[in-house]
Design a protein around this nucleic acid. Sequence first.
RNA 1: GGAGAGGUGUCCGAGUGGUCGAUGGAGCUCGCCUCGAAAGCGAGUGAGGGCAUUGCGUCCCUCCGUGGGUUCGAAUCCCACCCUCUCCGCCA
Length: 422
Amino acid sequence: MFDIRLLRENEAHLREACAAKRATVDLDRLIELDQKRRDLTRRINDLNTERNTASKSIGQKIKAGEDAEAAKAAVRRLGEEIAAAEEAQRAVNADFEALALTVPNPPHATTPVGRGEEDNQVVGHWGEKPAFAFTPKPHWELGETLGILDLPRATKIAGSGFYVLRGAGARLERALINWFIDVHVREFGCVEVLPPHLVNSPTMTGTGQLPKMADDMYRVEGEDFWLIPTAEVPVTNLYAGEIIEGERLPIYHCAFTPCFRKEAGSYGKEVRGITRVHQFDKVEIVKFVRPEASYDEHERLLRQAQTLLERLGLAYRTVLLCSADISFAAAKCYDLEVWAPGMDRWLEVSSCSNFEDFQARRAGIRYRPGAKEKPAFLHTLNGSGLALPRTVIALLETYQQKDGTIVVPEVLRPFMGCEVIK
RNA sequence: GGAGAGGUGUCCGAGUGGUCGAUGGAGCUCGCCUCGAAAGCGAGUGAGGGCAUUGCGUCCCUCCGUGGGUUCGAAUCCCACCCUCUCCGCCA
């Protein structure tokens, strides 16, 4: 949820923000609804005052043994008036809420304004693309030959867009998950969380997936359950509706969960291998911080994710997303793209976003800045650390040898129990 | 899934139609006392919105799981749903 005061006081700024995000929102109607809503609220407030005092006097009359029927009738009419006003208010509120939920978070000043993916800015590179004395193979060939990736059977039991790992492949994914979490917990002060993978609609609305992304998510038939598209959803909503004491901030969480996405409309590209699938594992970092600290925290979040790729020895680049390409709820976002030599392309393995108070407003997550101070909305951030299948892809393709075996990076060997996958 | 009990403020816990945003206790904050602390005493201690802000608001509205309903008036009565607990069933 954006700040409604922004609309009242700085309409032009919000219009620019919507344009930068290439969102078409009927702000005129929103302003109109806001005005109506406030008028009705004031009117109902006044009517309630009237009714409250009248009702009290009726009580006194009855106690005194006087006849109160005339007064009762008058208040009954007042009650009808209030009911009508409340009915109108409900309708206006529903319209207002529905429309307000479609207003995107304005981009931060440091987010470049752009029209699309092509306007994203590469702001950093790390590592060299590996050189091979042979033609590097794509992960699906490596995986099949080694017997660690089984796409045909995944398709048989679930459908296209799913994968089955086996043997060292399954172990590799689990090794990465464990190592990621260990690093986040031991070195970056995260508290590990293992949340539900199904959540309800208010939770999906809190982080901004609903209403906009409804068609991209899986839903349980006949019940109010959605399959999470990222751990961001359950973890951020952990504190929904709560007021956190200021001294508890910042709070850092990390969580491993599967992520479920329909990826509708993506057929035709990225269909080979496991770059775009309906279910994938991810370790996510979620931060709850004081507003004044959020952009420092954002940079540190980025470093946290980068650290993982660097220790794995995988070449990557850092991309600052432009206003048109960042998500609906984000104010600023960096993507980390890892080099996959077999596919000869960059793959997004992490997205580190600052949502400022956008999600906090929607989900009602507040903090008390200091003793006796009024609660205020805190800032939320999250970043992948990291998405699994694509990390596995980069790893297989980067560390492949001429004979098709894979060298296991140093940091994973304790978790893998071997130095080479063969 | 079936039967029963219950959901009230930071926590415990009263309240079964009217002045209850809510008794009481604990906790916390401040003050007194003390060399200091404890005890004791006194005061304060939820959120949102409106209005006001020529001081700091003796001002108004809303919120007692959620949503409806009855009533002049509901934390209190009725209905639905959600959640928690106990027992039974089932099960990893």
